[in-house]
Simulated assay, not measured.
Amino acid sequence: MRILYFYPENPLLLNQGNNSRANALLHYFKSRSIDVDLVGVESGVFSNDSIEELESGNLITKGYLLKEFKLKKNKIKYFFCYSLPNKIFGRIKHFSRIRFQHQSHFNSILKSNEYDYIIISYAYWARLVIDNPYIKNAKLCIDTHDFLTSQFQNLRGFNLGKYFQKEIELINNFDKIFVISAEENYLFSQFVKKEVITLSHIIENKFSKTTGNKKYDLIYVASSNSHNITGANWFFNEVYPLLNKEINILVIGKVCNYIQDFENVTKLSFVDNLDDYYSDSKVAICPMFSGTGLKIKVIEALSFGLPVVCNLRGVDGMNSKVNNGCLVTNISHEFARNIELLINDKEKYSEISNCGKEYFINNNDKQTCYDKIDVIFK
């Protein structure tokens, strides 16, 4: 079997959940001896060096990078080729990230190769293959990663019906539609005519890597997107003042740039290996009030047997909203109480941790997920 996998970002940068998902899928293909050609988009963190690393690690057979589009150098071309036509024909610009020479370069790859499957990541890259005469006999798959219409809802000029219709129109062109959560499966399957498959995040079971004595009581991993910034502000303004100041808190990720200094809070904007920090932490938190899709940071914590304290959005995408290793509330004093409970009550900690482990094994453990993917690519 031979697959062309389009993923625009660098799957070697595991500090983002979407990259971890792509990386895990490449490892699945490697384990099944499936030949994979990867197409990405060149950027400051995705160069030919990364392609060579992926090839040398046998995660891909061959890699290609579409040229990075730099708006500052192409403002006039962008206006006449994209902005103006979008306005004239009423197109939604947010549903296409294909820029100059992207399509022609992608087509050259298709012309020179034969593939059994072509997987496109994100609906805004769907037109790379829609009505493309060079796909030959390949089956088309799209990994949606997220419900994009929801991501656009705060944009100026947003129209729910128009955006949702466009998203459904794009994904309806594929033979198989991969979604990351049960909620997205339910939503898309109501409107698309093709097969919708829940392909949850794949992580190796790391229960045995947890240490006896933990250096950190709480671990909070987050990037600097607006959802995380809002959640971090809420936590440190509403929950943190209620906590015992002897609790050691570790924050990892670019969200650190939006958190002031506290004596009992360690901030690390970037780490090479999250595993070392998860294994040295007792409880994970995920304060979020918005955002769609499965929260990868929650699943990562469960893979180490860590209980999670989160808001209602923290359990989005999980197949079970209860008995899943998470204590859930949107109320600040309850959030603080749940943290204190897990830190101080060994029996309760063990109960919630064991629920999380069972949920993880049944839904996200590598072998469980591999068996499900085998059916997809049978």
Rank of each mutant, 00 (worst) to 15 (best):
S200N: 07
T198M: 00
I249T: 03
D345R: 10
V271M: 05
N58M: 06
T149N: 09
E52M: 08
L84C: 06
M318F: 01
N159R: 14
I34R: 07
K93P: 14
N364L: 02
S181I: 00
G212T: 10
C286Y: 02
S56N: 07
F360V: 11
R21V: 08
N338V: 07
S350L: 04
L294P: 00
T266Y: 03
L160A: 15
R91L: 15
H27E: 12
Y370V: 11
V308R: 07
Q260V: 09
D146T: 04
L160D: 14
A222W: 09
G157W: 12
I296A: 06
S281P: 00
R156C: 07
K77W: 12
P287N: 00
S104N: 07
L25T: 05
Q151K: 11
H201M: 11
H227G: 01
G57T: 06
C310M: 06
V192N: 07
D374F: 10
Q101L: 04
C256G: 04
K282T: 13
T292S: 00
S279E: 11
I296S: 08
T368P: 03
E238R: 04
N354Q: 14
L66P: 02
Q16V: 04
P133K: 07
C355G: 12
F289L: 00
I142Q: 00
S224Y: 09
R127Y: 14
V298K: 04
A301P: 12
S353H: 12
F236C: 06
S332G: 08
N185D: 03
K111L: 10
E300I: 01
D116Q: 14
D371C: 06
D345H: 11
L13M: 06
F80W: 14
F164R: 15
L327E: 09
F304N: 11
A232V: 10
I51L: 09
L268D: 06
V239R: 01
N172K: 01
